[in-house]
Design a binder for these strands. Sequence first.
RNA 1: GGGGAGAUUCCCGAGCGGCCAAAGGGGGCAGACUGUAAAUCUGUUGCAUUAUUGCUACGAUGGUUCGAAUCCAUCUCUCCCCA
Length: 409
Amino acid sequence: MGVFEDLKARGLIAQLTNEDSIRELMNSGGATFYIGYDATADSLHVGHYLQLATSARLQQAGNKPIVLLGGGTTMVGDPSGRNDMRKIMTREIINHNAECFKKQMAKFIDFKKPGAVMADNADWLLDLNYVSFLREVGIHFSVNRMLAAECYKSRLEDGLTFFELNYMIMQSYDFAVLHDKYGCNMQCGGDDQWSNILGGIDLVRRMYGDEVYGATFSLLTTSEGKKMGKSQSGAIWLDPNKTPPYDFFQYWRNVEDADVMRCLKMLTFLPVEQIDEEFGKLEGKDLNRAKETLAYELTKTVHGEEEANKALAAAKQVFESAGVSDDMPTKEIADADFENDMIGLLDLLVKTDIAPSKAEARRLVEQGGIILGDIKVEDAKATVGKDLFDNGFVIVKKGKKNFYKVVLK
RNA sequence: GGGGAGAUUCCCGAGCGGCCAAAGGGGGCAGACUGUAAAUCUGUUGCAUUAUUGCUACGAUGGUUCGAAUCCAUCUCUCCCCA
């Protein structure tokens, strides 16, 4: 089975410009493909991971990946599929973000292998001369056709600025530059990038007369079509400082039944046959085994084996034996916060960031959402004595799934 | 450039000058039920104190009024139609 068939089996392939040619190209290792990443935040998230992991699969099959940082395109912002304009970001922030991206990306793509390249479109976009760019590149674009693109549909109702309309042209130009510079012959991306990719393919043909290809990968969505990788507290980041490995692990441990198989196939590097064999027939609560594997495998590739083991062990102890683990999320409370060796429960919750405000803390307590040690506390006026901190800590449970070890400092 | 509509709490979206911390929905959080799942049901959802209440909030700034999210003026931004 070639890498193309593997990607297909994993459900990663969404759209292709030319299936036969692309299969041939990918399977023979002849693809020099690029995926662009706009530096919109200071950490990669799960959506990026999916693209990077897929790139890694292709690289392992001998294809050459080009990772393109969008230092230039981020200055404009991609309007595809959005119904509002992106916030305009400063050069400094974009540069900082791009630096953060670079560090994280090296984990997934092997840049030491020949042909693997990291580029930044700031290098050719920012110093363009407006008029000559229009004459050389702009001339190849039909506004009529651009506006007909699916990705602008919602924007045509709410308004689309000329500024943003140029995004597609910039991205298309990227492809042309990479084609010229590195012999790039394929662009990949999320399925929302289809229009932009087609633009690039067209441009390369018009400028160089060369045939290049485009492929989009399925977006990671739940069975209900909602984007995955977002939690109530925001995106799931790959940066351990923004999303601790334990939280990362828990996110995947808690995916819905209907999504486990797809996630396993799309995100982990376990062989498809193994996934099907081991988990394909599971039903009901047995699916928990699949979820555990998903969480473990993903944490392992993103944060390393050691962190994955820790997260798995912590989760097991906390959930299965109601025990204490050194690796469970820890919060600190200062000795100075106590008065006569006592502290109000609400103060404790707020000071440890378990609850964002006292009102919220009160609500939690009154609704029975707080368990201290093994006592459910429902009195908001309760106070906590230092003596409760056996061995210097106490376990606070917020809701059913959030466990914290509060350490007395 | 001309004409019109609008800016409300996390999001969408109601809102007679006092009864508006603001309907309703979504989302979130918590409880019940469960499998660390889903669906369902219940409660809750600005901050601070809870007995009362205080403070901050309805694009921005001023004004009218005993009293404004609601009226007036100016400004900023957005959308629609025409050119």
